[in-house]
């Protein structure tokens, strides 16, 4: 493995998380519980697609074989996407959307804060921008988790169910494979192992404040770093890639 190859994969993974979560959130347009929330969720989606564009462009530049960020975003097969399983999970009810947002945005806040120190100047620059955005995403998810957890009996029950349902996708966030290890040694990537304790602390604090129970770690789903996904991703891609795949000669 060369630094170039590893960096390409690394940028792709981060870009795919933003691309797929941005897509999921964009599905919620005109479906929010109140207009303000509709706008908040699509605004987060917009941040995500912007982040995906920056990271996939960096991947394309690193690969340097004439592909653009759009080719990368729209023309890969399902098993060449490397987003975490968590972000491709369906929106479900509003509690599931918020639970997914809570788990991922707390992780991303910690992750991108570390990535700011990367020796790779491009990743570091992107990370500085992302940290600012994701701080808001995290605060939004925390506020809603507390409101729903400590709201009515129904909202409490729904929020607890949602956290429980999403929990098995959280383990994957902290897996280090050979790409992570190689780039960590190079001073490029983030060491995920020490992040886990910080993440657990923060999540537990929020859940406790929300009068919710932090689930025990049970079996954790895995696979995305090798391109093995849940059934959800294929449906996302069939929608997302529709025009690019149906009219391969067209420029949009």
């Amino acid at each position: 493995m060369t630094t170039k190859e590893a960096t390409y994969t690394y940028a792709l993974r981060l870009g795919d998380d933003a691309l797929i979560l941005g897509h999921r959130l964009s599905e919620l347009c005109s479906r929010g519980p109140i207009l303000e929330e509709d706008l908040a969720l699509t605004n987060i989606s917009l941040d995500m697609i912007g982040r995906a564009q920056a990271l996939l462009k960096y991947a394309a530049d690193t690969e340097n074989n004439g592909n653009t960020e759009d080719d990368i975003a729209y023309r890969r097969a399902e098993n060449h996407y490397y987003n975490h399983l968590l972000v491709e999970q369906p929106n479900g009810d509003f509690a599931h959307t918020i639970a997914r947002q809570l788990l991922i945005s707390v992780f991303e806040y910690l992750f991108y804060t570390e990535l700011e120190k990367s020796r790779d100047e491009n990743l570091s620059a992107i990370a500085k921008k992302v940290t600012k955005e994701v701080k808001y995403h995290m605060q939004h998810a925390i506020d809603w988790t507390i409101r729903l957890g400590d709201g009515t009996n129904e909202s409490h029950k729904r929020m607890q169910t949602a956290i429980n349902d999403m929990w098995m996708y959280s383990g994957e966030l902290f897996e280090m494979d050979e790409v992570d290890q190689y780039l960590f040694r190079e001073g490029v990537a983030v060491d995920l192992i020490p992040l886990k304790a910080h993440w657990q602390n923060r999540i537990q604090t929020v859940l406790t404040k929300a009068t919710l129970v932090t689930p025990e770690d049970g079996y954790m789903q895995t696979g995305s770093k090798k391109g093995v996904h849940s059934e959800n991703l294929g449906h996302i891609l069939s929608e997302m890639q529709y025009l690019q795949r149906s009219y391969p000669d067209a420029k949009w």
Binding site: G32, G151, T152
Partner: peptide
């Protein structure tokens, strides 16, 4: 579908 969310926010 959002009614329970609005109720929860109000209750909180």
């Amino acid at each position: 579908e959002g009614a329970w969310v609005r109720e929860a926010a109000e209750a909180y």
